[in-house]
Computed example of a mutant assay.
Amino acid sequence: MDIRFVKRDVLKEKPDQKHLGFGKYMTDYMFVMDWTKEDGWKDARIVPEGPISLEPACVTLHYAQETFEGMKAYRTAEGKIQLFRPEMNAKRMINSNARLCMPEFPVDMFVEAVKALVKVEADWVPSEPETSLYIRPFMFATEAALGVHMASAYKFMIICCPVGAYYAEGINPVKILVEDELVRAVKGGTGFTKCGGNYAGSILGQVKAEKLGYSQVLWLDGEHRKYVEEVGTMNIMFKIAGEIYTAPIEGTVLPGVTRDSMIHLLRDWGYKVNETRLSVDDLMKAGHDGTLEEVFGTGTAAVISPVGELRYKDDVVTINDFKIGELTQKLYDTLTGIQWGKLPDKYGWTVPVE
């Protein structure tokens, strides 16, 4: 791609790396590229980060035709910068776009755009332990015309922000509420896509959970409200009697990059990973009879999040005495070790930004 660069007059002041939080501080620049029905993708550019102008009739504002991705850039101890499996994010966005009738942004262009922006923003990639540069590629319709239809114009953008730990609790166990009234996704819907509507629809459950003192919601399947699927911002895995259980990728669960990476690691270590439906009743039974040994969420933002308590209706179980499990810790240490370059990458997952 020929990427045009527009230099910023005055660079932003960088935040304290020890107090980054998550998603608070945007970097100096953003990547932008436009698509029209007539010309396809055109005018790739890196420009100063700032507001964008939209017509009030922009179809995305009315019909939510948008998708996004979440990924990170990591600084190694040697000062080098690397990405983690960016091609998986690119392919997932292609699948999300296809479901929402949006144009495909090719894998090679996606990875090139991410690399180009991260290279420009190299000084923003933090070096403090547990920190990284969060990368948010997203696409949305820009046509100004009311009416539900595939739009004639779209914009692909990437913004970045340096981040610390996703949860204030850090790697400590969190409490999760099983939602038994609302549903997140159904087969044939958009549950497998990364689109804003999925997250907007989950906020009510999150609010309900927080009022009861829980950090996140564990969603059940939309058809039977019986099988555990995923947490609002993460896939989730259960270690029961020495085996791993996680919901299958059948159209209602996001195919997480971290999820896939964890499954690779677990199977390499000899664990049996069951990608199968697990009923909430069986899960709670395992919690009470002691066979539920560990529970952990997986996702790009949090990496891995141990679960110390599950509540379903009026039934509550505590997992592993509300301590992080041995396997959960090993998974976290191994995956982050690969991401930050502390451990060898035998899978070829890391991609240098040079």
Rank of each mutant, 00 (worst) to 15 (best):
T300D: 11
R311A: 13
H224P: 00
P306V: 05
P137V: 05
G222T: 03
V125D: 02
C160N: 13
L310V: 02
F105E: 01
V186N: 13
D260G: 10
G232L: 00
Y154R: 02
A73G: 07
K42W: 01
N97P: 02
P103V: 00
G188A: 05
F22T: 01
I81Q: 09
K194H: 10
R136F: 08
T190W: 00
D39Q: 12
R225A: 10
H19K: 15
E230H: 14
D282F: 11
G205K: 03
V183M: 13
K285L: 12
F138G: 09
A165Q: 06
I81E: 10
H149N: 08
D268M: 00
I324V: 15
T233Q: 08
A141E: 05
H19F: 11
T131S: 12
P15V: 01
D34M: 01
P106Q: 00
R259N: 04
G205C: 02
S279Y: 14
V174P: 09
T291S: 15
D28Y: 07
A168F: 11
D9I: 03
T27H: 02
E169C: 03
M139Y: 05
F296Q: 08
I304D: 07
A122G: 02
M102Y: 04
M139C: 08
Q206K: 08
T291V: 05
E223G: 07
K330W: 05
A302H: 09
K115E: 11
A209Q: 06
R136M: 06
I244R: 00
A302L: 06
K24R: 15
F296C: 00
E130P: 00
A247Q: 10
M262R: 05
G297A: 14
F138S: 07
W41Y: 00
G213P: 03
L61C: 01
R92C: 00
V174A: 08
E13L: 14
D2N: 13
V280W: 11
K239Q: 15
K37M: 12
Y134L: 09
V178L: 13
E181T: 11
E78V: 01
M139S: 07
L220F: 05
F68N: 00
A90V: 05
V47N: 09
H149L: 04
G308E: 01
M284Y: 04
Y312A: 04
N320M: 06
S127T: 11
L254C: 11
A98W: 07
K119T: 14
T76C: 13
M262T: 14
K272A: 13
Q216K: 03
T258H: 10
Y29F: 13
L133R: 00
K80Q: 13
G70H: 01
V174K: 04
V303W: 00
L283M: 08
W219K: 10
L327A: 12
F68W: 08
M109H: 14
E87D: 14
L292M: 06
K175P: 13
V231C: 13
Q17N: 09
T328S: 12
L266W: 09
S261E: 04
K285V: 11
G147Y: 10
T318Y: 14
T142P: 10
W35L: 01
Q339W: 06
A73H: 06
M157Y: 02
E49Q: 14
K72W: 14
N198E: 11
V353S: 04
K42G: 06
M234I: 07
